[in-house]
Amino acid sequence: MTRSRATARKAGTSFETLVANYLATHIDDRIERRTKNGNKDRGDIGGLRHLGQRVVLECKNTIKIALGPWAAEAETERGNDDALAGLIIHKRHGKAKAQDQWVTLTLGELVALINGNRDHYETN
C-alpha cells in the first residue's frame, strides 16, 4: 500500500515532532520542530547547537533510503541556516522510540562537528 501525500505529510510531521521532543528533553528545551520556509528551508529541527553553532537536522520517515538526495538537501539547508553541520535523522522501521532512529552524516560533517569549523572543506 502506498502513502497518499496527506498521510506522508502527517507521518513526516509526527516523526519530526518525535525527534524534536526527544532532543528538547535530553539536550536543550529550546529545540523545536521548524515550520517550512519554502526554497529557503533551514531544516526540520531548530535550536540544536554544538560548540555554540547551529546544527541542521533533516528528518525523513520513509522506507526507501535515498542518502545522496537527503545529504544534498541537508547541505542546502545547512547553508540557508549558516549552520556548522547538516545531519539526517531517518526512521528505523520497526522501532518507535526516538532514541532508536538512525542518524546519517558525511565524514566531512563529522569532522566539522568534532573540530567546530568547516575549514577542512576549503583545503580539499
Rank of each mutant, 00 (worst) to 15 (best):
H93R: 08
E77N: 11
R9A: 15
K91D: 05
Q99F: 04
L67Y: 15
A98P: 03
V56Y: 04
K40N: 15
Y121M: 05
G12R: 07
T35F: 11
E109A: 14
K95P: 00
L113P: 03
W102E: 11
I27E: 01
R3L: 15
E75M: 03
T76N: 06
L87D: 06
D82Y: 03
N124R: 10
V55T: 04
V55N: 03
N39I: 12
K36Y: 14
E58D: 13
L105R: 14
L110E: 10
K64Y: 07
A11P: 01
E109D: 10
T106L: 09
N21W: 00
I88M: 08
L110S: 09
E73R: 09
C59H: 11
I27C: 07
D81M: 12
I31P: 00
T104E: 12
L113R: 01
E16Q: 15
R118G: 01
Y121H: 08
S14R: 11
N39G: 04
E16D: 13
N61W: 09
E77A: 08
G52H: 13
I27A: 09
L48Q: 15
M1L: 06
G94Y: 12
R92M: 04
G116A: 09
W102H: 12
K97W: 02
Q101P: 01
R33G: 02
H26S: 02
T62D: 10
L67C: 05
A83V: 07
A98Y: 05
L113Y: 07
L51C: 07
L57P: 03
R9F: 10
D82R: 12
E73T: 14
A8V: 03
I63A: 06
A83D: 10
I31W: 05
E77K: 10
H93G: 02
T62M: 07
N21T: 03
R49F: 05
A8N: 09
G86N: 08
D29F: 04
A8S: 09
L107C: 07
K95I: 09
A85F: 14
I45S: 11
Y22F: 15
K60C: 01
K10V: 06
D82L: 04
D100R: 02
A66H: 13
R33V: 05
T35W: 08
N117A: 02
E109Y: 04
G47A: 05
Y121R: 08
G38E: 08
H26C: 06
V56N: 06
I27D: 02
M1D: 10
G43A: 11
D119V: 00
A98W: 05
E16C: 06
A83H: 09
V55Q: 03
G47W: 01
K97V: 03
T76P: 00
A24H: 00
L67M: 11
H50V: 15
G47R: 01
E77D: 12
G108W: 10
N61G: 03
E77F: 11
D82Q: 11
R5E: 06
A98L: 12
K60P: 02
G79D: 09
E32Y: 09
